Amino acid sequence: MRRAFIRTALVSLACLAGFAHAEAAGRRHVAPPDRAEERIVPMYGDLPGCTDPAVLSELTSWFNSRESTYWGPLQALSYDRIAQIGYRPWGDDMIPRRFCTARLMLNNGVYHRVDYSVRENLGLFGMTWNVNWCVAGLDRELSYAPDCKMARP
């Protein structure tokens, strides 16, 4: 009886230590059956990087299309100061996302910050990754207000 109590106490302490470690890292503790990799349709987090030409090309294409259709003559020309600001920040059971930020130069010569995320299985028919983005100062419908904060982790 006493051994069972000690064993239970040790297991409880080990679990609490694991939760404390996850909390300190800013992530929730996830039991193995709930991880995204172990779902019926698994998600592995194999996402292209922030500087990947395919990611920047998709971002440019969507931005240029939106601007020419709705708002006017602005077009994306180039990116610099590209940096990753988060990878799966909400834990292993959420859809894998890579959060990035960069400086975008437009055809009017003005630089804007662009915050974007590469998200797994949210592309066409859930077969591939896609990009979600917000350009600071050009979020005219305030979808990610204030100042694109909601596009960041």
Rank of each mutant, 00 (worst) to 15 (best):
E120T: 12
A22V: 03
A76N: 05
M94D: 05
M105D: 07
S117E: 14
G26I: 11
M105N: 13
L59T: 07
R119C: 04
C100E: 11
G126D: 06
F63S: 08
I40A: 10
H29T: 11
L122M: 12
M105G: 01
A25L: 05
E38D: 12
G72P: 05
D115A: 13
R113L: 04
G109Y: 00
R39T: 03
L124R: 10
M105K: 15
H112F: 02
W71K: 11
R28T: 08
W71H: 15
F99L: 14
L74G: 00
Y79Q: 06
P89N: 02
A36Q: 12
R97W: 00
R119Q: 15
L104G: 02
T60R: 14
L124G: 00
M105W: 03
R66K: 09
L59R: 07
W71F: 15
I95S: 10
P33A: 09
D46L: 09
N64H: 04
P33S: 10
R28W: 00
G126Y: 07
A76T: 06
R119S: 12
I40Y: 05
E37I: 13
Y116L: 13
E58Y: 02
E58Q: 15
G49Y: 03
P73G: 15
W90M: 08
E38L: 13
D115P: 00
R66T: 14
V55Y: 04
R119K: 11
M43R: 15
R39H: 03
G91P: 06
H21Y: 09
P48D: 14
A102I: 06
S57R: 13
G123H: 09
T69S: 11
L106A: 09
L74C: 01
L106E: 01
R97H: 04
T128W: 07
Y44E: 13
Q84M: 15
E58I: 09
D92L: 14
L74I: 01
V30T: 12
E67C: 04
V110S: 04
L47T: 08
L122S: 06
Y87H: 13
G72W: 01
L47E: 07
G126S: 08
N121F: 04
P32E: 14
T128Y: 03
A83W: 01
A83H: 09
E23Y: 10
L104I: 07
